[in-house]
Structures are given as structure tokens and as C-alpha cells.
């Protein structure tokens, strides 16, 4: 039986991996992957395949053989002609898909999180540096469990009176209004949200909402209200306690060596 050329094997592997990303990971296992990410992974797959086939001279020659044959061999004239027609057509289609006008907004590159200013303010009053400000009720967790529980309950009340419409009753960003927003409300159940930030950051994000984010964070387009206009300082700290307690994720601290 004739052995399958290495080039064909690599091509099949590439297509299989593409199908795996598109339909297995992006369908059976989880939700669809963005095309930008699939493209990035496919480039890496091409690189890995090229690395594998080009390490040894013999293997590389074997890999290139069908390409050379297609380009130069007289017996491969039909294949050559077909490719010379197909390749420009594919490129034409690709170019058309990129330059044609669409009604959908384009894919946007967005920074994960805006950075807070050096000083933390509440209604224009400086309450300390972002690095040093701590949740005034956090110490109660050790010192007075009952009082701590009361503040968490207050936080729960504040959350369900104000936040749950967008962030959802399970804190997963799937509130009643969530589908109307772009970007979607934060999912506090995601392990990359609460544990990655100090409580001072969460205080800043809640109190300033979308409109008062720094210019460096643009385009942010967050529809979150400026909650310092509606909630007291204590209520914001309490709702942070609730977020932490409900999700089981603990905000990070500034660390031992913080200045």
C-alpha cells in the first residue's frame, strides 16, 4: 500500500486540530471560541508542525516533495492549474470578507482591568492611598464574628437592592438586564475577578462605576452607575464583604512588603 505523503499527513493533522478547536472545545466541551483566538492557535499549530518536519533534512525533503512536484513536475499539471486558480479565489474571498462593509461592530481589543489612581476618593474626599486603604470591617472577621455577619448581611441587602439586576442573583453576571449591555456585567464567580484585586480596587470600581474611569482605561464603555452617588461608604465596603463571602473568593492583600 502506498504511504501517505508527510505533507498530506500534516495537512490532515492541521484540519483535525482546527475542527477540534472549533467544534469540540468550542461546541461539545464549552462555548464557541472567538475567531481571533482560533487564528492564534492555528498559527502556533503551523509553527509546531514546521518545527517537527524541518528538524531533519530527510524529513524536510519528504515534506517539501509534493510541493516541489506540484510546482515543477509535468505529470502534476492538473493539480498545479487547479491550485493556481483556487489560491487566488480563496485570497479574493478572504480579502472580500475583510474589506466588505458589515452591519456588525468589529472585534475590539480591550484591556482586562483599568488601574486605580494613587489616591482613593469617595465623593471627592480622599480616604487614603489605593495601596493602603483596607476594608474597615474586614478585621471583624477575626475580632467579632457576629458583627462581621451583620455587615455581610447588610452587603447582601445592598446587592439585591441595587446590583443583582445586572450582575445576577447568583453573582455570575447574568442578571435580567445583562443581555442589554456591551460589555456584559462582571461575573463575580469567575476566579479572575475578586481574587485578583485588593478590596480598595473593588471599592474604587464600585464607587466610580463606568463614567468616572480614568482616560487610560478607554474604551471601557461600562454602563455601571457611579455608586458613590447612591450608596454610603459603609454600604460599598459591606457589599464587597458580601461578594467575597458569597463566591468564596477572597480579595488579595497588598502583600507583606507593601510600602
Amino acid at each position: 500500500m502506498k504511504r501517505m505523503p508527510l505533507f498530506t499527513k500534516c495537512l490532515i493533522l492541521f484540519v483535525l486540530l482546527w475542527l477540534f478547536l472549533k467544534f469540540v472545545i468550542g461546541g461539545i466541551i464549552s462555548v464557541p471560541l472567538p475567531s481571533s483566538l482560533i487564528a492564534m492557535y492555528l498559527w502556533l499549530i503551523i509553527l509546531a508542525i514546521l518545527v517537527h518536519v524541518s528538524v531533519e533534512d530527510d524529513r524536510f525533503r519528504e515534506f517539501l516533495r509534493p510541493i516541489k512536484e506540484t510546482l515543477a513536475d509535468e505529470s502534476k499539471k492538473v493539480r498545479r492549474t487547479a491550485l493556481f486558480v483556487l489560491i487566488p479565489l480563496v485570497m479574493l474571498g478572504f480579502t472580500f470578507s475583510k474589506v466588505s462593509t458589515r452591519a456588525d461592530p468589529p472585534a475590539a481589543l480591550r484591556t482586562a482591568h483599568p488601574a486605580p489612581p494613587a489616591d482613593l476618593t469617595y465623593r471627592d474626599k480622599v480616604i487614603g492611598t489605593s495601596q493602603e486603604v483596607e476594608n474597615p470591617f474586614r478585621h471583624l472577621e477575626k475580632d467579632d464574628a457576629e458583627a462581621f455577619r451583620v455587615h455581610v448581611e447588610n452587603g447582601r441587602r445592598v446587592y439585591y437592592q441595587n446590583c443583582f439586576f445586572c450582575h445576577g442573583d447568583n453573582l455570575d453576571g447574568k442578571g435580567h438586564f445583562a443581555h442589554g449591555f456591551q460589555p456584559l456585567p462582571a461575573n463575580f464567580q469567575d476566579p479572575g475577578i475578586i481574587p485578583n484585586f485588593q478590596e480598595s480596587f473593588l471599592f474604587w470600581r464600585i464607587s466610580k462605576g463606568g463614567p468616572e474611569l480614568p482616560p487610560a482605561a478607554t474604551p471601557w464603555d461600562s454602563a455601571m452607575p457611579v455608586w458613590e452617588n447612591y450608596l454610603t461608604e459603609e454600604e460599598i465596603w459591606e457589599v464587597i464583604l458580601f461578594l467575597s463571602e458569597y463566591t468564596g473568593y477572597r480579595p488579595r492583600t497588598s502583600g507583606e512588603g507593601a510600602h
Binding site: 472545545i25 462555548v31 453576571g173 456584559l184 469567575d190
Partner: peptide, 29 residues
């Protein structure tokens, strides 16, 4: 090299249920 916040169209974001993909979004951490 998987970013935490993916470059995605609004439709893709909606299909993911947010800016972070529930599976590969974890690779961004």
C-alpha cells in the same frame, strides 16, 4: 499566550457569555 480578555466581536462575546471564555479564559490567569 492566551489573553485574559479576548479579542472578540459582540456576537462572540454574547456566545461566550461574557468577555472571558469559561474554559480558555482561565488560561489568562
Amino acid at each position: 499566550m492566551t489573553p485574559r480578555s479576548l479579542i472578540a466581536t459582540p456576537q462572540e462575546v454574547a456566545a461566550m457569555g461574557g468577555r472571558y471564555h469559561p474554559l480558555v479564559g482561565l488560561f489568562g490567569l
